[in-house]
Nucleic acid binder design. Structure first.
Length: 248
DNA sequence: ACCTATGTTGATAC
DNA sequence: GGTATCAACATAGG
């Protein structure tokens, strides 16, 4: 499920129910999810501490601690944060924290594409897609010969938009995913920025990534506005859908 | 049986 | 350096 809206939902859940609880132990045995840490490293750094704040940029979120290193978390493609639930019977809790009060916080992730690590590096993340300003958006997105779709998926350009949000926003802004990013006019870039923010706003309110185009895309269906059959291709390494009649 | 999948990273090649 | 492609992670579903 996860793009920016799901990451924000996880962050907010931890902010509401995961702060100020003393950590009794950490299960960090999954060395792929907890890379590059050795088993026990995260446990040693966090045991006896509490989370004090839950912050987010793009799809990445992290928890500040009282005197220890921050804990970075990422949901990958199939991860979710569960708080005070019984452990996954299928062993999908790839990383888990037990609090002294007996509760727990787990990263539940069948595919193990999520991450948990200390002192996460945010240098490879651009400004948050929900907050980026007009001028910065124009500068960062509107350059290069790369396809617009690939530019928007690049988390260093803009953090938080994933495959679905980008397709939905390009459709709302009536822009073709293969347009070279550097050839957009300022009007088109402004239109695109408004579309991205609108998709994220709708999705945050809805509690997960959503939109009319995403729904049509899932059914491999028709354009929700004009009814034309959608086209699809691989762009920027991801399956991309668009309306051939409207997106230019 | 085969293909695809809301993500990231590192390797490789042009 | 910019751009493009691929493999890896492991499971679910069409």
């Amino acid at each position: 499920m996860p793009e920016l809206p799901e990451a924000e939902r996880a962050r907010a859940a931890i902010a509401a129910r995961g702060l100020g609880r003393r950590i009794a132990s950490v299960d960090d045995r999954d060395t792929y999810v907890c890379r590059p840490h050795a088993p026990g490293e995260i446990d040693a750094a966090l045991r006896g501490r509490m989370f004090t704040e839950a912050l987010r940029r793009g799809k990445a979120f992290w928890l500040e601690t009282d005197g220890g290193p921050p804990l970075g978390l990422h949901l990958g493609m199939t991860g979710e944060i569960v708080i005070d639930e019984e452990p996954s019977e299928r062993g999908f809790d790839r990383f888990a924290i037990t609090f002294e009060d007996g509760g727990r916080l787990a990263l539940r992730d069948p595919r193990r594409l999520g991450r948990a690590r200390l002192d996460p590096n945010l240098d490879h993340l651009g400004p948050d897609a929900a907050e980026i300003g007009r001028d910065e958006f124009r500068e960062r997105v509107g350059r290069g010969a790369i396809a617009l779709k690939a530019r928007l998926m690049d988390q260093k350009t803009l953090a938080g938009a994933g495959n679905l949000i980008v397709d939905e926003a390009l459709w709302r802004a009536r822009l073709h995913p293969r347009r070279p990013a550097g050839e957009l006019s300022t009007d088109e870039l402004d239109r695109l920025r408004r579309a991205i923010r609108a998709v994220i706003r709708d999705s945050l309110r809805h509690g997960g990534t959503t939109g009319p185009f995403i729904a049509a895309r899932d059914r491999n269906g028709a354009c929700p506005r004009c009814g034309a059959p959608l086209e699809s291709a691989r762009i920027g390494g991801r399956t991309t859908y668009w309306c051939p009649a409207e997106q230019r």
